[in-house]
């Protein structure tokens, strides 16, 4: 799974608002793609896209909230920033509850929008990086033998080799061997790193989540 370069997807039925937003966002060096309605965006959407969505809540045809529902249903979790001419409170609450990053009322301060966009993009990139790392970890973890996973769980839990050997009914020497294999397969340079990797995998006694 590879991610494309992050982009800001602008969805608004007003061409001037689209163009102006596009210009503003491009001024901070972000790539922009514009759509005149929600359906057009949904049709073109690819899961590997990264960045964030800036959409008008009030649009003819499919509204912003409907778009949000569709994206959630698809499992697409790209950050969503709503802008609105005049959003009423229930609309705003619903948008945030459904996971929107923010709702900006027109006219809005450019700095505030750009901050939101930048943080959204960063967050999406981080999220995607984390997903990437977690995927690699899972592959590494999958390469471990059952015995090695047992040893790794014990090591991460901070047990001494002797205690582990006793619990697993192994010799201390064998535990040390397994432990070295784990460190190598998991590409962990130190015990501390291994613990962090295990946390990322959300390991507990029963295995990875």
């Amino acid at each position: 799974m590879s991610s494309d370069q992050a982009r800001v997807f602008i969805i608004d039925d007003e061409s001037d608002v689209r163009a102006a937003l596009s210009m503003l966002i491009r001024s901070i060096g972000l790539e922009v793609e514009t759509f005149s309605n929600a359906l057009e965006f949904l049709v073109s959407y690819r899961p590997q896209w990264s960045g964030c969505i800036v959409a008008d809540i009030r649009m003819p045809g499919m509204s912003g909230l409907e778009l949000q529902e569709k994206l959630n249903a698809m499992g697409a979790d790209m950050p969503l920033i709503f802008i609105s001419g005049h959003a009423d409170v229930p609309t705003a609450v619903r948008a945030i509850q459904e996971g929107a990053l923010d709702l900006l009322e027109k006219p809005f301060s450019d700095q505030r929008l750009l901050d939101k966009v930048q943080s959204a993009v960063r967050r999406d990139l981080e999220r995607r990086a984390e997903i990437e790392v977690r995927g690699q970890l899972r592959q590494r973890y999958a390469a471990l033998t059952p015995r090695e996973r047992e040893v790794m769980t014990a090591v991460v839990a901070g047990k001494m080799n002797k205690v582990t050997a006793h619990e697993l009914n192994l010799s201390t020497r064998t535990v040390e061997l397994h432990r070295a294999n784990v460190m190598e397969k998991m590409q962990a340079g130190s015990l501390a790193e291994l613990v962090r990797l295990a946390q990322m995998l959300e390991l507990d006694e029963s295995g990875p989540a």
């Binding site: 007003e14 001037d16 608002v17 163009a19 102006a20 937003l21 210009m23 503003l24 491009r26 001024s27 901070i28 009030r58 802008i83 001419g85 005049h86 027109k106 006219p107 809005f108 450019d110």
Partner: peptide
């Protein structure tokens, strides 16, 4: 409220264009 929205659209465009220009 419909009218407010109608006037707001061009205002929003104006503001955003101007801000983008200032940045550029």
């Amino acid at each position: 409220s419909a009218f407010a929205h109608e006037v707001n659209q061009p205002l929003c465009a104006i503001l955003t264009y101007s801000q983008a220009c200032l940045r550029l």
